[in-house]
Amino acid sequence: MKRRTLLASGVAAATLAMAGLPALAQDKTKVGFVYVGPVGDGGWTYEHDKGRQAVEAEFGDAVETVFVESVPEGPDAVRVMQQMALDGADLIFTTSFGYMDQTLEVAAKFPDVKFEHATGFKTADNVGIYSARFYEGRAVQGHIAGNLTKSNIIGYIGSFPIPEVVRGINAAYLAAKAVNPDVEFKIVWAYTWFDPAKEAEAANVLIEQGADVVLQHTDSTAPQAAAQAAGNVYTFGQASDMAEYGPMPRVSSIIDNWAPYYIARTKAVMDGTWESDSTWDGIGAGMVGIGEITDAVPADVKASAEALRDAIAAGEIHPFTGPVNKQDGSVWLADGETADDGTLLGMNFYVEGIEGDIPQ
């Protein structure tokens, strides 16, 4: 009887030990990332993936990260997100505006999984949203561009006519106009986030129209290469530093720094404090960085651009401060008035002075 009891105890202990193995495995937090472009795009997705790598470096064996790159904005995104959730992801970051509705759709099916959607505006109990105030960086770029242009024509490559992109165009234009009243913006819509051939074509079209400065809200370095081939055309890095094209044509950049946010939200899931939230940070919080302003920019312009950057970071200057009219001449911001976040988040108009219509 005693032997039987010992055997039973041994079996029970072994069973408990075996049961503990999957429990230990489940303790590892699994974090998924859905990317609209390839991790090697040199821009938007490249910086998001640097954030993913930072999560791994921060938490080591306590986390597992997975990612799928070049996921189209549409039904296929649902499949990718759903598979991540089925594979045990505890937290999923969906990193493009066009994933918004798909994120909500999948989140409703997996209420125990936390989702974070970049640049969108819809939330749920298990869906948070986050973005950066890129328009702050566009204002710094516009300031530099307005000072540098000799032709007074600045080209802008837009991706899609969504508020985020329209905000950037307006912010850059107002900053350029403030230092150069004769400046003119020409805008080409590429209707893509990442397509080097289309981006290069757009850059070349703008250069042929007289632009000697080209800004972009697309993700590859193709516009830099096109400007380099044309000669005497200035560009700016988008989303990442793109410093390999410095000191010319790339004279500065907007750098997206997602790592601190990804680390903080992963930690919140790990310690059980995650809640649906809305985050919109800029230069001051470090989510938007301004890349080195190269020596191709005159020293006085570099100094004034850095002063503008610092003033925006400190909250002393808002890129959208009146007097500012809408394109049709109607008053938008009175003298000294600053734009509210609600209007900025839904911005669907050009400011006065920009020609052309926003595509519908």
Results as ranks from 00 to 15, higher is better:
residue 271 D to L: 07
residue 210 G to S: 11
residue 260 P to V: 06
residue 268 A to L: 01
residue 197 A to G: 01
residue 223 P to S: 11
residue 349 F to P: 07
residue 264 A to R: 14
residue 155 G to E: 03
residue 198 K to H: 07
residue 344 L to M: 13
residue 179 V to W: 11
residue 21 L to W: 12
residue 28 K to P: 06
residue 272 G to S: 10
residue 12 A to S: 00
residue 165 V to R: 06
residue 322 G to L: 10
residue 86 L to N: 11
residue 77 A to H: 03
residue 37 G to I: 03
residue 244 E to M: 15
residue 294 T to W: 05
residue 221 T to Q: 14
residue 76 D to A: 13
residue 14 A to N: 07
residue 206 L to K: 04
residue 223 P to A: 09
residue 200 A to Y: 03
residue 22 P to A: 08
residue 268 A to V: 02
residue 229 A to M: 04
residue 3 R to I: 13
residue 187 I to D: 05
residue 300 D to N: 14
residue 196 P to Y: 11
residue 48 H to P: 09
residue 4 R to P: 04
residue 92 I to R: 05
residue 189 W to I: 10
residue 289 G to S: 08
residue 199 E to G: 03
residue 336 G to Q: 12
residue 342 G to W: 12
residue 48 H to W: 15
residue 321 T to L: 10
residue 123 T to Y: 08
residue 277 D to N: 15
residue 351 V to L: 06
residue 67 F to Q: 08
residue 33 F to K: 09
residue 20 G to S: 13
residue 257 N to E: 12
residue 27 D to V: 03
residue 337 E to N: 02
residue 17 A to G: 12
residue 5 T to Y: 11
residue 262 Y to T: 06
residue 160 F to H: 12
residue 102 Q to N: 00
residue 246 G to M: 14
residue 238 Q to L: 01
residue 96 S to C: 09
residue 287 M to K: 10
residue 329 G to P: 11
residue 241 D to N: 14
residue 264 A to Q: 14
residue 97 F to P: 02
residue 308 L to F: 10
residue 85 A to W: 09
residue 273 T to V: 02
residue 157 I to T: 05
residue 48 H to Q: 14
residue 228 Q to V: 03
residue 183 V to S: 05
residue 280 W to H: 13
residue 42 G to I: 02
residue 120 G to I: 06
residue 89 A to T: 11
residue 8 A to D: 01
residue 172 A to R: 05
residue 278 S to L: 07
residue 224 Q to G: 02
residue 52 R to A: 10
residue 268 A to G: 07
residue 245 Y to P: 00
residue 232 N to S: 14
residue 4 R to V: 13
residue 207 I to Y: 02
residue 28 K to H: 04
residue 306 E to D: 13
residue 139 A to T: 03
residue 232 N to T: 07
residue 186 K to G: 08
residue 319 P to W: 06
residue 165 V to T: 14
residue 18 M to S: 03
residue 300 D to W: 10
residue 162 I to W: 09
residue 178 A to F: 04
residue 159 S to H: 09
residue 125 D to S: 13
residue 308 L to H: 05
residue 173 Y to V: 10
residue 241 D to I: 06
residue 46 Y to L: 01
residue 334 A to R: 15
residue 203 A to S: 14
residue 357 D to A: 15
residue 72 P to T: 08
residue 168 G to I: 10
residue 52 R to N: 12
residue 292 E to C: 01
residue 233 V to A: 11
residue 210 G to Q: 10
residue 158 G to Y: 03
residue 1 M to K: 11
residue 295 D to G: 11
residue 155 G to S: 04
residue 17 A to E: 00
residue 183 V to G: 04
residue 11 V to K: 00
residue 257 N to K: 14
residue 67 F to W: 13
residue 260 P to L: 03
residue 1 M to Q: 01
residue 219 D to Y: 03
residue 47 E to M: 15
residue 73 E to D: 12
residue 327 Q to D: 12
